[in-house]
């Protein structure tokens, strides 16, 4: 654990920034969880709630930027403080996109709820479980200053990509087979596509966390080492 700053306000500003990022991450994850639940349980009210709450995440993104900019202007952070501000602002961009994907899933859930239940809908669960776990671990890594956990996300995302491809192929096959529920299968293809993208965005959060904690830029880097 690092020593605290001599300047009390600086400590408070850094804490406030971290807390806002974590609150935003919590909200984005909740939106994702409820979006998938609304899809699986055909719950239109829940889907509407997710769509409505996306504005909250947007507002949080603005707040993270505002807090980050205030720290830059007031305290001229350097070294680990500077990396924390830069990474937090970038992480909030990724979290906002994750929430957008949750909203997009909720919108498709709302549309599918108008049709008869599709038994195949459960096929998204495995993809969801994996992407949600990546997102949770990305948030944990940021919260716990855990660069090793953050670094491992990239490799785990490859497994998610394999599962996504398999599920996506299955859904495409249904359409090719001439199933009359083409629209619903198309919705599901976009849902799993969103879940796969959430995995990528979680990896981004992990990369920013690695930069924050270990000062290493591991983006686009095949040999990922701290």
């Amino acid at each position: 654990m690092q020593n605290t700053h001599i300047l009390h306000d600086f400590n408070e500003a850094i804490t406030a920034l971290r807390q806002e990022v974590l609150a935003m991450a919590g909200q984005a994850r909740l939106n994702l969880e409820r979006a998938v639940e609304s899809l699986l349980t055909r719950n239109v009210d829940l889907a509407n709630a997710v769509i409505g709450d996306d504005n909250e995440v947007d507002e949080m993104e603005r707040k993270v930027d505002r807090l980050g900019m205030e720290i830059l202007v007031r305290f001229h952070p350097v070294a680990s403080d500077l990396r924390l501000v830069l990474s937090s602002m970038k992480i909030s961009i990724n979290l906002e996109r994750i929430s957008d994907h949750a909203t997009s899933i909720a919108k498709r859930a709302r549309k599918m709820a108008k049709n008869q239940e599709l038994p195949d809908v459960n096929i998204v669960e495995q993809v969801y479980a994996m992407s949600d776990q990546l997102l949770r671990d990305a948030i944990t890594a940021y919260n716990n200053h855990d660069a090793a956990l953050a670094l491992g996300l990239h490799e785990r995302d490859k497994e998610l990509n394999r599962v996504y491809k398999r599920v996506s192929n299955t859904l495409t096959q249904r359409i090719e087979e001439g199933d009359e529920r083409t629209d619903d299968y198309l919705h599901l293809i976009f849902v799993v596509r969103s879940l796969e993208r959430i995995g990528d965005l979680s990896v981004n959060v992990g990369e920013d966390t690695v930069f924050m904690e270990a000062a290493k830029d591991v983006r686009h880097d095949e040999e990922r080492q701290i």
């Binding site: 690092q2 020593n3 605290t4 700053h5 001599i6 300047l7 600086f10 305290f75 952070p77 350097v78 070294a79 680990s80 403080d81 500077l82 990396r83 000062a215």
Partner: peptide, 18 residues
């Protein structure tokens, strides 16, 4: 030095920590 100093004492000094 100002993005990733090698030494913890440097980090503490430049970031204004005890």
């Amino acid at each position: 030095v100002f993005t990733n100093p090698d030494n913890q004492r440097t980090e503490d000094y430049i970031t204004g920590r005890f």
